[in-house]
């Protein structure tokens, strides 16, 4: 039976949603009878995170080592490659998070295999399995397959659903990575937290984004109020970030983040290609712009041609009424 490893990351007191998405896909493969699956967690593992992971896997492996106390690409790559080699894994799945995309390419080199990065779909039943990756900012989809193993795949958040948890908790085991001192030449010397606990744009289900049409930094409060009403994350265009109205972390697009939410609302955004490349896998797009020819309407499911300074507050008010807030 071929073994699948799912690299699991934590956020707050639980596993990341994208990790649960991949564990859920893995469980479906286990259900087909041809695969076994293990969740793999590296570094410090809080008890609450562990408890929640165990409901989505038959087995959780906690890889420990003093070198894994802080994230470094070298340390994580050595640890995961070491475990994958030890256990003869045929596939490694992970969410296409900043961290996974940073260290999994190193794992691929250590295991002399390839990686399919940021996939948005998988054909699990075809032989060999194939994976779908958007290229050229989503203008082409490439279907790729592996000629070396383990197949390493990172999946864009929100590409797969989270399934039902298991009735029975999985087993738990520890694995010592055995990284020798001095092998990791990177050390974290400081960590500053600014917006802890916020849902990251890349994993957000709901995004409200604003562009230059907001006219001034302080007007982003209209975007923030709407976002707060529905529990959405705020996004911004490059123009707005370059004008220092919003932080770089909020930028959606080619030089910012690629997002894939259930709902993307964009107000005062013209739709420059660089922006579209970062959000065109959103499921539902609502664009609000007073220019009926704004390019963003070509990529939207719904559009309101009108003044965002009137539309946004009216939407916030209506949502408050309907949601009873």
């Amino acid at each position: 039976m071929d073994k699948i490893l799912v690299f699991v990351e934590a956020k707050g007191d639980g596993p990341r949603k994208v990790s649960l998405e991949l564990l859920s896909e893995g469980l479906k493969l286990v259900g087909s009878g041809q695969f076994s699956m293990e969740a793999v967690f590296l570094g410090k593992l809080p008890g609450t995170v562990k408890g929640k992971i165990l409901h989505y896997t038959e087995k959780l492996i906690h890889v420990t080592d003093p070198a894994l106390e802080n994230y470094t690409a070298e340390g994580y790559a050595m640890a995961l490659a070491g475990y994958a080699r030890e256990t003869g894994a045929k596939m490694i799945l992970a969410g296409a998070t900043q961290r996974a995309r940073d260290f999994l390419p190193r794992v691929a080199v250590l295991l002399q295999t390839g990686i399919a990065s940021d996939v948005t779909g998988a054909n699990w039943d075809s032989n060999p399995m194939t994976f779908i990756r958007p290229m050229y900012g989503g203008r082409v989809l490439a279907e790729v397959s592996f000629s070396a193993y383990p197949a390493i795949v990172t999946a864009r958040p929100n590409s797969f659903g989270v399934g039902a948890s298991l009735a029975q908790k999985g087993e738990f085991a520890e694995f010592q990575a055995g990284i020798s001192p001095g092998q990791v030449k990177t050390s974290v010397i400081k960590r500053e937290e600014t917006t802890l606990g916020k849902v990251d744009l890349t994993e957000a289900d709901l995004i409200v984004a604003g562009g230059r049409g907001l006219k001034a930094a302080e007007n982003f409060r209209l975007i923030e109020e709407l976002a707060r009403t529905i529990g959405a994350t705020v996004g911004a265009t490059r123009a707005v970030v370059d004008a220092k109205w919003r932080d770089q972390a909020d930028q959606v697009g080619k030089s910012g983040k690629t997002v894939s939410p259930k709902l993307y609302m964009g107000a005062g955004i013209s739709g420059a290609i660089h922006h579209i490349m970062g959000m065109d896998t959103a499921k539902v797009v609502l664009a609000i712009n007073n220019d009926p020819h704004a390019i963003i309407f070509n990529y939207a499911n719904y559009g309101i041609v009108g003044d965002l300074f009137e539309v946004l507050p009216a939407m916030t008010e209506e949502l408050r009424n309907r949601l009873g807030k």
């Binding site: 990177t186 050390s187 010397i189 400081k190 917006t195 606990g197 990251d200």
Partner: peptide, 9 residues
């Protein structure tokens, strides 16, 4: 995510 890290290498 949510902040900034300083790394020495």
């Amino acid at each position: 995510e949510g902040g900034k890290e300083t790394v020495e290498v």
